[in-house]
């Protein structure tokens, strides 16, 4: 028989023109269920007006990113046990730094447009992917393969980033990580975009993006690497004028 907890789910509610407020829903849950399961239960059995995004339920689509007890989480892989205790409260809010469409659903359009602007790829050739086995050890025959890129475009990094809170033009961690994966050597036209006020230099090293990333993309490390790429590219251009 599975363990049962009684929890209170506090859901942030905000329809167009409304001031945000919380609605509370008391429910019995299995603590090993996921936070998304609890939100879905509200929608299915208690309040059909609760609006949220979800699709795959296995951390691939990146749709269900929310703030759970003040921390950015992919709710389909975040167990209730990890976030509260029996008799406790689970506070669920929309991601920060994106316009709220309704309740927990935010408009991710700016992220997708910027990912497109830097040519972020959803699949990578195997030799370019960061995997445990170094590319140099791959058999030449294996180099034809491609794999899904790690970033699932969930936006958690942008929500957690303090710099993104104050600058609407900031490309943001996921986008800069996408540019880094592309590389300035391969895409020199990206230099102007990332070597700018709202590019790599807007990052103020809070490393919150890497702390919340559910796919271990480690955007902060990639931003630092992109800065090195910018230095290298700028320095080499001093000696190779076009």
């Amino acid at each position: 028989m599975s363990e049962k907890w009684n929890i209170t789910l506090k859901v942030s509610r905000q329809k167009e023109g409304e001031t945000p407020h919380f609605d509370e829903y008391k429910m019995e849950v299995d603590p090993d269920e996921y936070v998304l399961d609890a939100v879905e239960r509200v929608w299915a059995f208690m309040d059909r007006t609760v609006c949220f995004r979800h699709a795959c339920h296995h951390s691939t689509c990146g749709a269900c990113g929310m703030r759970v007890n003040n921390v950015e989480k992919l709710t389909c892989i975040t167990s209730i046990r990890d976030m509260c205790q029996d008799g406790g409260t689970l506070k669920v809010e929309p991601l920060r730094n994106f316009p709220v469409i309704s309740d927990l659903a935010v408009d991710m359009g700016s992220l997708y447009n910027r990912l497109e602007a830097v040519g972020a790829r959803s699949v990578l050739p195997v030799p370019e992917a960061e995997i445990e086995k170094p590319a140099s050890t791959w058999d030449p025959a294996d180099q034809q393969y491609i794999r899904l890129a790690d970033c699932i475009e969930c936006g958690l990094c942008i929500s957690a980033c303090p710099s993104a809170a104050t600058s609407s033009g900031y490309l943001g961690p996921a986008v800069l990580a996408g540019a880094q994966a592309n590389g300035l050597k391969r895409n020199p036209e990206l230099l102007q975009l990332v070597d700018a006020e709202d590019g790599v230099w807007r990052c103020h090293s809070a490393f919150e993006c890497s702390a919340v990333c559910p796919s271990l993309v480690d955007p902060a490390r990639r931003i630092m690497n992109l800065r090195t790429q910018v230095f290298t590219e700028r320095f080499s251009r001093l000696f190779h004028k076009a």
């Binding site: 703030r67 007890n69 003040n70 921390v71 950015e72 929309p94 991601l95 920060r96 730094n97 994106f98 316009p99 709220v100 935010v106 303090p162 993104a164 809170a165 104050t166 600058s167 609407s168 900031y170 809070a206 490393f207 919150e208 702390a211």
Partner: peptide
């Protein structure tokens, strides 16, 4: 609406949920 804005500079000092 939670849009980025320079007016939100005070959120820099909010330690809740930070690493």
């Amino acid at each position: 609406m939670e849009k980025p804005s320079p007016d939100k500079f005070w959120t820099w000092f909010n330690p809740v949920g930070r690493e």
